[in-house]
Each structure stands twice: as C-alpha cells, then as structure tokens.
C-alpha cells in the first residue's frame, strides 16, 4: 500500500507532485446532445487519498464522476471525448469490459440502494458475479471482511439473513459501501453519499471514508464544503463545466487562487 504523503502541513505540494495518480483524465469533454456539460477537464487523482469534487449544481462534477466508470454510457445522448486512464488503461478503449471496469471503479450513490435481498446477499452479489470466492466459506469470509471494513459488522452480524432494505438509512448506505468494496475496487466513487443522512450517520460514513482511503482511492462529490474540508486531502472546484482549480484541500479552503473558487467557498455572489 502506498502511504499518502499528505500530513497536515501547508506544504502539501508533494501530494500532487509525487504521488502517482491512479486516475488521469486528459482533456475530457462531455456533451449531452448539443449541450456541453464538461469542457476540456484535465485532472490527476492521487492514489490512496480522498479527492472531493465541489461546485454549484450543474457545474459538471457529477458528470465527471460518472465518466470515471462509464456510467454515462447508460445515457444515449451523452458523448465523452478525451482520455481517462485508470491504472494505466484508457477506460474508453473499445476493448475495455465495462463490467470489469465497474468492479475496479465502484460507486456509491446519493440514495442508499440496497438490493431487495438479504444483507449477506447484498454483499455476496458482486463476489459471485465476478467469481471472487472459490468456496462457501471464502464467500462468507469476504462478506464478513467487507462488512467489517464498512463498519457495519457489529450491527448486523446476528441478522445477516434479514433484508437489506430493513436497515436504517445510514446502515443501508454502509451496506452499499460494503457491497462496493467487496469486489476489491481500486477506486470508489461516491456521489453525495451523506446527503440523505442525519449528522450521526454522516459522521460514521465520514469516519469510514477516512479508514477506507488506506486501501482505496476515493473520489467524492459533495455539496457540503465542510464535509469536503473534513474528509478530503485534495479538492477540485468545478464551475460551469470547467475545472477551475484543483489542489490540496487545505490550500483550496484557505488561500484559493481563483476568485471564482473564493466566491463559491466563502458564499459570495460571484
């Protein structure tokens, strides 16, 4: 595992200069029919860190996130140009298998969406379709490991056969995280994972995200700037389809370079 270089100093230049990017987006332009949603975005995402994507509604941050595991393929009128390299491979190469890609680049959504199955089956599902468990006991071990990593095991270990949809909102979201990380992705994409949760459940997810970055690279879209400041090591600010600024979170929230970033994060009319 690569140790993140970022500690808590202001001199976090090394985060971007020395850590090898796990995702490298070059000149990515996305359009929905005639409307350009993302304009020539170039962004390197460092490994084993949490990167926050912030910006006002419609700025293109979710569009960018969805490019990273080709979720935009599901939208007919969407066209993606440019290059996105994940772990050395251009994911828009026709030879890439999207199902395998999405195992490497998992996703957690705004609203928890567990399958209408048992807690166990929710986590085991991905392991089964990707043939990641050779035996029943290995499957059980992997499910247990994922639930533990997602901080949910202690709460559900005695009711693994109960339905996943019966859990509380925060538990459901952690179940979805367990389901995502069960297939050992390199990258976990999170689209507003806490927006439907109360502060306590949010704190648990944030704590979990911080633990998970030891093993995974996390990219999170959030409308809460405080959340971005709390949990991420690097932050990218999008505005009107453009990547305005990307840098160490501490720098973005204390001394941003661009006046548009400053206006947004200080809550000014800009």
């Amino acid at each position: 595992m690569q140790e993140p270089v970022y500690v808590e100093t202001l001199s976090v230049k090394s985060v971007h200069d020395e850590v090898k990017p796990v995702i490298s987006a070059k000149d990515v332009t996305v359009s929905y029919a005639d409307k350009v949603a993302l304009n020539s975005v170039t962004l390197n995402v460092p490994a084993n860190q949490v990167t926050s994507l912030i910006g006002p509604s419609g700025c293109g941050k979710t569009t960018f996130l969805r490019c990273l595991n080709r979720m935009n393929d599901l939208i007919d009128i969407c066209r993606v140009r440019g290059e996105i390299i994940v772990a050395g491979q251009n994911i828009y190469d026709p030879a890439v298998d999207v199902v395998t890609l999405r195992a490497h680049v998992g996703m957690v959504f705004q609203k928890a969406n567990p399958f209408p199955k048992s807690i166990f089956e929710n986590v085991a599902y991905g392991l089964r379709i990707h043939n990641m468990a050779a035996s029943k006991s290995e499957l059980e071990d992997r499910v247990e490991l994922s639930l533990k990593r997602a901080g949910l095991w202690d709460e559900v270990s005695d009711r693994l056969n109960d339905t996943g949809t019966g859990l509380s909102g925060g538990q459901q979201q952690r179940l979805c995280i367990a389901r995502t990380i069960a297939v050992e992705p390199q990258v976990v994409l999170m689209d507003e994972p806490c927006s439907a949760l109360d502060p306590v459940a949010t704190a648990r997810i944030e704590e979990l995200i911080d633990d998970l970055r030891e093993k995974f690279t996390i990219i999170i879209v959030t409308h809460s700037m405080h959340q971005a400041a709390r949990i991420s090591q690097s932050t990218a600010f999008f505005h009107m389809g453009e990547l305005v600024e990307h840098g160490p979170t501490e720098k973005i929230f204390t001394t941003p370079k661009d006046t548009r970033t400053e206006s947004y994060i200080t809550g000014r009319i800009g």
Binding site: T259, E262, S263, T266, G267, R268, I269, G270
Partner: peptide, 11 residues
C-alpha cells in the same frame, strides 16, 4: 473580493 455574501447577516 468585495462582493457581498449571499447570506447578508454574515456581512
């Protein structure tokens, strides 16, 4: 950066 805050009471 002299523009006003969206929340006036912050100003």
């Amino acid at each position: 950066m002299n523009t006003e805050h969206i929340v006036k009471s912050f100003d």
